[in-house]
Simulated assay, not measured.
Amino acid sequence: MTAESHSTIGNPRTKALSDVGVSIWLDDLSRDRLNSGSLASLIETHHVVGVTTNPTIFESAVGSGDAYEQQLAELAEKGADAEQAVFEITTSDVREACDVFAGTYGATNGVDGRVSIEVDPRMARDADATIAEAKRLYEAVGRENVMIKIPATVEGIEAIAAVISEGISVNVTLVFSLERYRAVINAFMLGLEKAHTDGLDISKIHSVASFFVSRVDSEVDKRLELAAEEGKPGTEKLKSKAAIANARLAHQIASESFSSERWRLLAERGGRPQRLLLASTGTKDPSLSDTLYVTELAAAGVVNTMPEKTLDALADHGEVDGDTMTDTYVESNRVLDGISAAGISYRSVVDALETEGLEKFDKSWEGLLSTIDEGLKRQK
């Protein structure tokens, strides 16, 4: 069973997206959301079938309100430091969210009902440390429907294959480039091949690759403005086109990769395809539709993880018009060719975005540690 057949009630606009075959995941988690029943409610009202988290989300959650005070007091009593407390608090939230989605997980045969938790982003350039932390998180959460998030750095590619080969489901995050996405798919297949060789049931191993969207437009549009100032023609028509084109070409890569002979052999052994997950789907440019990166990137078998603001916008006024990704590849290539013709280096853009993404997560992680440390000190 897939997302389109899982839920038949609730908001008609989110249902329309679900009916296309898009799995709607919420990009947010907090103790308040769990305690209030808000997360459980979204499953029924907004067709939400999964959750993603990251250091920024946890920093915001812990820094707001007093929902974590009791656990902080217990951890302080045990003498936990900030690092230990972060681990305990985040895995507790994710474990509880996994339980909220247990029904969805069962109903979709493990495809949805997933909750993602990220390895310490400071390990992003260290494959061995990432592998060890992924195993530690998986064991601590102790739920089959958890996904461990691993950034798609060069070092992360090695870790992805290794963690998948251990039978752990992985959400590959911070994917910006088409070249890196191909490497991510290869790592996923390498991991499954090794898992099968080692005698594991590969039908139990799931993965998504989080291809970031809105940040691509933010970076490219900034560079297009400079190109326009330099008098390069045709830049205006390319504004806010790069992110959608990039994501649609990622969809082409996924479609081709998971219809290959290599994949056919894995599928015969029980392998489940790694799904394309569209992340960073909230629009940052106020002149754009607030549902742009949802309605223009709809296709069966993809996941769209949305911040609550974007989910609410979709539910309020989003116009879903079927599959908007398949058969768009030629035009999408024209967009990227036009950007290149304007003197903008695709490689420079995606490299800058990866570096910026890692820096943001590092900063959020340090902020989370600081907030937790202050909370522990309050208990003493």
Rank of each mutant, 00 (worst) to 15 (best):
A254R: 02
T173Y: 03
I57V: 15
K309D: 13
F87S: 10
P55E: 08
G199K: 08
S370C: 10
H196N: 13
L276G: 01
Q252P: 08
S207C: 12
A313K: 03
I131V: 13
K360Y: 08
E331C: 12
S214L: 06
E356N: 12
G231M: 10
R95M: 11
L200P: 04
L266V: 07
V303P: 00
I150C: 04
R143Q: 13
A300C: 12
H6S: 09
E83Y: 10
I117E: 02
S370W: 08
T173N: 07
D351Y: 07
R334N: 14
V51D: 03
V141R: 00
G357D: 06
L39H: 02
F361Q: 01
L226K: 15
E166L: 13
V62W: 00
N246C: 06
L358P: 00
D99K: 11
V146K: 00
A124W: 01
T130Y: 02
E230K: 14
E230Q: 15
K15A: 15
A76I: 10
K380I: 13
A250Q: 03
E319C: 07
I205F: 04
S60N: 12
S370H: 15
I131A: 03
S257H: 08
S289K: 07
I253K: 05
M1V: 13
S60A: 15
A140S: 14
E356P: 04
L137W: 01
H6K: 08
T283E: 04
N54D: 09
A124N: 03
W263M: 10
E144S: 11
E256I: 09
A132N: 09
I372C: 06
T2L: 14
I150K: 03
L336N: 05
V20S: 01
L297E: 00
F101G: 00
A245G: 06
L137D: 00
S280H: 05
N304C: 08
L178T: 06
E261H: 11
E74K: 13
G142V: 09
S38G: 14
T104V: 14
S41F: 06
E44I: 06
V294Q: 02
V303M: 04
